[in-house]
Amino acid sequence: MSTGIVTTDLRKTFPARRWQGWRRRHVAPVAAVDGLSLRVPPGQVTGLLGLNGAGKTTTIRILSTLLRPTGGTVTVDGLDVVDHAREVRRRINVISGGERMVYDRLTARENLWYFGQLYDVPRARLRTRVGELLDLVGLTEAAQLPVERYSRGMRQRLVIARGLINDPAYLLLDEPTLGLDAPIAHQLRALIAQLAADGVGVLLTSHYLAEVEQLCRHVYLIARGSLVAQGSPAQLAGQTVRRHTVRLVLSVADPAVTAALRALAARHDAELIVDVDDGGRPRFALRHPEDLVGVVVTAVVQRGATIVGLTVTPPTLEDAILTLTDPAVMAR
């Protein structure tokens, strides 16, 4: 029996209908997931990245048994998610950012108590588990308030606690830090890392790429429902054309320096952006596959200008996503 969540050639299409005159007619179905194969092993955080509409949320809904795949298979510890949905639900849970998922009229404690019962958590265990989770997400003091009086961040923290109520073996996180204050998001990231260290298999989608780079050992990058790349965050960043960005700020504007940098950019076929910073000082950003900081600084210093700010940004995961999911690149 293979452990972990395993998808093989996973497909999901949605029927589509369009208005044609007075009637709605069926048109070609829309493929949300198209031949996706991935694995979420226990004890590590796996990333699932892609632009909006890439199929991340649909994939998570299939893995969590909410949607049935149109084709392919999904197993959780060897159990098929369609044939053994109830058993799979005992082993997994989902935390979604921006979704309701809890009852507004109930308090946090009542919500957790209710969901604990739906997951058949034994009463004695549930009593301690509810207290632990309220502590964990910092809602102990607000535990007796109806959720309708919570802020968005407090509500999201309760959604996180709900997702942990059954001690899931696998946790599917769909933008879990959406709407959270920085300290709470930081705390959640630490919690995710700890859960993985304790053996929980985590699948994470997030728009905060620093979060993915920090937490994920392995990342799947998808576009239009298909896998376009996979590897560690560093490997993914390295798969793309490197784009180093050199940013520099000068003390005063100098047309000679500007002309020199424009000529340099043209010579290297680099992208140059010229503007001013908040203090009105000239600012340059030069993007190129190679690190051009040496030639840029030489050109500026040779013309007697004073550099007051200089940064070099290496290629990032964001660059990789933008490049690898570019339709032109995908077509090649």
Partner: peptide, 12 residues
């Protein structure tokens, strides 16, 4: 009210 999914996620 957005709670159907959290209901259906459970084995109940």
């Amino acid at each position: 009210e957005g709670t159907l999914e959290s209901q259906l996620l459970t084995p109940a």
